[in-house]
Simulated assay, not measured.
Amino acid sequence: MSVALDSGRRRSALGGSATISDVAEAAGVSRQTVSNVLNAPHRVRPATRERVEQVVAELGYHPNRVARSLRASSPGMVGYRIHPVSTESVAAIHDRFLHALVEAGQAGNHHVMLFTAADTDDEGDRCVALCRTGAVSGVVLYDIAPQDSRPDRLLAAKVPFIAFGRTAVGTDRYSWVDIDNSAGTEAAVDHLVAAGHQRIGFLGWPEGSSVGDARARGWLAAMDRHGLLARSHRLDVRGPDSMSAGTRLMAELLSRPEPPSAVVAATDTLAVGALHALRDSGLRAGHDVAVTGFDDTAAATALGLSSVRQPIEEVGRLIMAALLGVTTGRADVEPFHRVLEPELVVRTSS
């Protein structure tokens, strides 16, 4: 039996390393079938095996030995880029998510392969390379920006993936799990209003972040719903997500002719900085000025900081379960979408 390869594909194979995806496409079979031909030929019908073997020979495909050894030690590998943590941050949300992802993966006989990347473009390239060499069967994306290029990059390369977060547009084309960040800051405002506060400030990130923008919208929506936006519109201040920025922004608010009696911070990192500013001004959190954070970090527990807690463990479980679906190669698997509600944990700071 002969298999005709178009000259363009032949030249591509000769000019660069052929991948298991190239072999599968040329032979008209799945990547799993190619893998079975190479590793468990007795599972494949003779005619199919012969066709795949001919394509392997013509393309000069050489299996990635490192990837094969990884697959031999684990039935499923999932790629994930680890992110550096700033010394100016108290955030542990990334660590919690990674732990939840690994735990959920082990329950489903999948394991997580960690890698680093210089930026999101580099991350996209590495995801494609890892998948094409067979080192991973899919990847998880984290910290999605409104105009993030990674989903389109991986969709075009046919790399199975799930995102924690979502872009501003095109979210129907890929699978994602997200937190209702707006609902989290709305809950914080509702709590402060119930405690009698009317001048409620907001410490947030500069515009352009999916998470930061959503948390800002929550503050705006709740303040407007309570009829407090007009008297608080000058109390919305933004800066980088660092403790020093939180201290500076809070000091700026305290210097206003009519300072806030309460502040909603977009992260625990900014909130801890705000607590430092209160201390430096001789004020007490929860007595003179109420403060809430977001992410419910270990620092929030230690400092008595009220904070919005994300259901990260559920996020990890849902992402791993959905990834098992998209890595099967089934054409009938629909994109998976889920938004989870966060919960405000009230402590002495508010």
Results as ranks from 00 to 15, higher is better:
residue 8 G to K: 12
residue 11 R to V: 14
residue 12 S to V: 02
residue 12 S to M: 08
residue 23 V to H: 01
residue 23 V to N: 06
residue 24 A to S: 06
residue 26 A to T: 05
residue 28 G to N: 10
residue 28 G to H: 13
residue 31 R to W: 06
residue 33 T to I: 10
residue 34 V to K: 04
residue 34 V to P: 11
residue 38 L to C: 05
residue 38 L to H: 08
residue 39 N to L: 08
residue 44 V to M: 08
residue 47 A to F: 06
residue 52 V to G: 06
residue 52 V to C: 05
residue 54 Q to L: 10
residue 56 V to A: 03
residue 59 L to P: 12
residue 60 G to N: 07
residue 70 L to A: 07
residue 73 S to Y: 10
residue 74 S to E: 11
residue 75 P to E: 03
residue 78 V to W: 11
residue 79 G to D: 10
residue 79 G to H: 04
residue 82 I to A: 14
residue 87 T to S: 14
residue 90 V to N: 04
residue 91 A to C: 13
residue 96 R to K: 11
residue 96 R to H: 14
residue 99 H to K: 12
residue 100 A to F: 01
residue 102 V to D: 00
residue 106 Q to C: 14
residue 106 Q to I: 13
residue 107 A to E: 00
residue 108 G to N: 13
residue 109 N to L: 15
residue 111 H to K: 15
residue 111 H to G: 13
residue 114 L to E: 09
residue 114 L to Y: 10
residue 128 V to F: 07
residue 129 A to S: 09
residue 130 L to I: 11
residue 131 C to S: 09
residue 132 R to G: 08
residue 135 A to F: 09
residue 138 G to R: 01
residue 139 V to D: 12
residue 143 D to E: 13
residue 145 A to K: 15
residue 149 S to R: 15
residue 154 L to Q: 02
residue 155 L to V: 07
residue 158 K to M: 11
residue 158 K to F: 07
residue 162 I to C: 04
residue 162 I to T: 00
residue 165 G to H: 00
residue 169 V to R: 15
residue 170 G to S: 10
residue 171 T to Y: 08
residue 172 D to H: 08
residue 174 Y to Q: 11
residue 177 V to I: 03
residue 177 V to H: 00
residue 179 I to N: 07
residue 180 D to I: 03
residue 181 N to H: 15
residue 181 N to R: 08
residue 182 S to C: 06
residue 183 A to Q: 12
residue 185 T to H: 10
residue 185 T to N: 08
residue 190 D to L: 09
residue 193 V to W: 04
residue 203 L to H: 04
residue 212 G to V: 09
residue 212 G to T: 05
residue 213 D to G: 03
residue 215 R to K: 01
residue 215 R to D: 06
residue 217 R to L: 15
residue 218 G to H: 13
residue 222 A to I: 07
residue 222 A to H: 02
residue 224 D to S: 10
residue 227 G to F: 05
residue 230 A to Y: 02
residue 232 S to M: 00
residue 235 L to E: 03
residue 243 M to D: 09
residue 245 A to T: 12
residue 245 A to P: 14
residue 245 A to S: 15
residue 251 A to L: 11
residue 254 L to F: 10
residue 254 L to I: 05
residue 256 R to P: 12
residue 257 P to G: 00
residue 258 E to W: 12
residue 259 P to R: 01
residue 261 S to R: 01
residue 263 V to H: 05
residue 267 T to H: 04
residue 268 D to L: 04
residue 270 L to V: 05
residue 278 L to R: 02
residue 281 S to T: 05
residue 286 G to E: 01
residue 286 G to H: 06
residue 288 D to M: 12
residue 292 T to I: 10
residue 294 F to H: 03
residue 296 D to L: 05
residue 297 T to I: 02
residue 308 V to Q: 02
residue 318 L to T: 03
residue 325 G to R: 03
residue 326 V to F: 02
residue 327 T to H: 04
residue 328 T to Q: 11
residue 337 H to V: 00
residue 337 H to E: 07
residue 339 V to A: 14
residue 340 L to E: 04
residue 342 P to Y: 05
residue 347 R to Q: 12
residue 349 S to H: 07
